[in-house]
Design a protein around this nucleic acid. Structure first.
Length: 483
RNA sequence: UCCCAAGUAGCUCAGUGGUAGAGCAGUCGGCUGUUAACCGACUGGCCGGGGGUUCAAGUCCCUCCUUGGGAGCCA
């Protein structure tokens, strides 16, 4: 059984035989000796194999070495020795190599050089073998683990909310229909519409766009819950920040108001950043260097002043700015870009939706740190958000971060039965379709709050990647579901 | 869905109406320990698809497809 390269790299030279398995990244050979950089995914670091053809070890001949090419898989064993070269502390002096699977150099698309992220997206089945995706996926795993740890340590229960939902009032965009009705000639009603009463569930069903409403039900009994699952949006969004299938974390807390909610969200983000910095040192270091190289390509004026690691450290250590929507509008109305008519959407009055350019100005130019904007106009936000005493705004909060924009959206929920019914009516949501959601306000209703964090957006922020397709192993976007 | 840009060798790109190029990769050879090794030679093209203008189109026009950036919607 071979040992992981991450472990081998921490070992000291000894006479014991060490076995490793992995994929060849590069091979460099001269007349008498060859060097192979081997990676097994356990770490971004490679183990250097030294193959001395002259030593006459069995199987270490030119025929075998010809199969050792970039991309080939092999098992190797030998003695771990102090390296004569300067790039690594130890290296494996090979006594035996068995090539498991060859990779024809004429065809294998990955070369030992920098490839564009666009090209790597086209070879999504092989891009796992690159440094950048290895790093991202190890960080992605670490973040998954840290999310469960954060909530578990604080007494939250993980709830699996449904992926197939009969609720069509979640109000978060277009949904994917789930049906077993025949493609051709489905049963129809008299008015020509499809008769979903004959469908699998006896009604029209879709893939979920949010687990929040169901999460609220659980929070009304278990107190503190969170969901962490896939969500689906059938929006025709063609941007670097949207996926049709993405993962979302949605905590919901009973007896918590909007301030508690903001405190939780801020502590959560800072915890996750800290976890990545402390537990993914090699990968984060690599990603920070990659980020710095990307920044160098930008014009001076658009460059980040801080490295990725510095930026994350800054966000982790400094309190987020908290402002109301009304204050945000005042800042934006009086800011230079607005007065000089630099905004595509001028800020002229209270009540407008904040556009991407406005959010970016607040975060990147005005405050230069994450900003929590609260208390939005009631017309602009979902029906379940609690109406404030001023009757004009709701207890909503959005967390905006540099580079990514909105990373968290949340609110205190409307817990008052009568008010919630009125709000649902305002949004033309049939009350009978959410009878169970309303019931929760009828029986033992409590003040409660929650938020949603887009997992891939979190990863973009932490890894410094600028396209969401590069932080998901299998991105689903309009016209694209190849792998 | 809208706006803009781009599709030329396996990859990254140059080629602005007149014989299709470079670097890297690959192959072969060389090199006494390399670090995306180095040195030399060779190989490699329906110039995204279709249609048009022209004596002549990679280059100009139309159209479709794909990709990227921005916008909307949002996480």
């Amino acid at each position: 059984m071979s040992q992981s390269i991450s472990k081998v790299l921490t070992m000291s030279p000894s006479d014991e035989t060490v076995s490793v398995s992995g994929w060849v990244r590069t091979k460099r050979s001269s007349k008498n000796v060859a060097f192979v950089a081997l990676n097994d995914g356990s770490t971004i670091r490679n183990l250097q194999l030294v193959i001395d053809v002259d030593k006459g070890y069995e199987g270490l001949n030119e025929e075998v070495m010809a199969k050792v090419t970039t991309g080939a898989s092999l098992c190797a064993s030998g003695k771990l020795v102090a390296s004569q070269g300067s790039g690594q502390a130890v290296e494996l002096l090979c006594e035996k190599i068995s090539v498991q699977g060859v990779a024809d150099p004429d065809e294998y698309p990955l070369q030992p050089k920098k490839h564009s992220l666009e090209f790597l997206r086209e070879i999504g089945h092989l891009r796992f073998r690159t440094n950048v995706f290895g790093a991202i996926l190890r960080v992605r795993h670490a973040m998954t683990f840290a999310i469960h740890k954060f909530f578990n340590d604080r007494g939250f229960y993980n709830i699996h909310t449904p992926i197939i939902t009969g609720s069509d009032c979640e109000g978060a965009g277009e949904m994917f229909r789930v049906t077993t009705l025949p493609e051709h000639n489905p049963p129809l009603l008299d008015d020509g519409k499809i008769d979903y009463a004959q469908d699998f569930f006896g009604k029209a069903t879709n893939l979920t766009v949010s687990g929040q409403l169901e999460g609220e039900l659980a929070a009304m009994a278990l107190g503190k819950i969170y969901t962490f699952g896939p969500t689906f949006r059938a929006e025709n969004s063609n941007t670097s920040r949207h996926l049709a299938e993405f993962w979302m974390i949605e905590p919901e807390v009973a007896f918590a108001d909007l301030t508690d909610n903001m405190n939780l969200a801020e502590e959560f983000l800072q915890y996750l950043i800290g976890y990545a910095l402390e537990n993914c040192v090699d990968d984060m270091d690599f990603l920070s260097k990659r980020y710095a190289e990307e920044e160098k390509l930008k014009p001076q004026a658009e460059r980040e002043e801080m490295t990725l690691l510095e930026k994350l450290e800054f966000v982790r250590k400094n309190a987020f700015e908290r402002i109301t929507y009304t204050q945000a509008i005042e800042i934006l109305m009086n800011c230079t870009p607005n007065k000089k008519k630099k905004f595509q959407y001028p800020v002229e009055r209270w009540g407008i939706d904040l556009q991407s350019e406005h959010e970016r100005y607040l975060v990147e130019k005005h405050f230069k740190k994450p900003v929590i904007v609260t208390d939005y106009p009631r017309e602009n936000k979902a029906f379940y958000m609690r109406v404030n005493p001023d009757e004009k705004t709701v207890a909503a909060m959005d967390i905006l971060v540099p580079g990514v924009g909105e990373i968290i959206g949340g609110s205190q929920r409307e817990e008052r039965f009568e008010v919630l019914k009125e709000r649902a009516a305002e949004f033309k949501i049939p009350l009978e379709s959410i009878w169970w959601y309303l019931d929760i306000r009828k029986y033992g209703s409590v003040v409660h709050s929650g938020f949603g964090l887009g997992f891939e957006r979190l990863l973009m922020f932490i890894t410094g990647m600028t396209n969401v397709r590069d932080v998901s192993p299998f991105p689903r976007t309009p016209k694209s579901a190849e792998f």
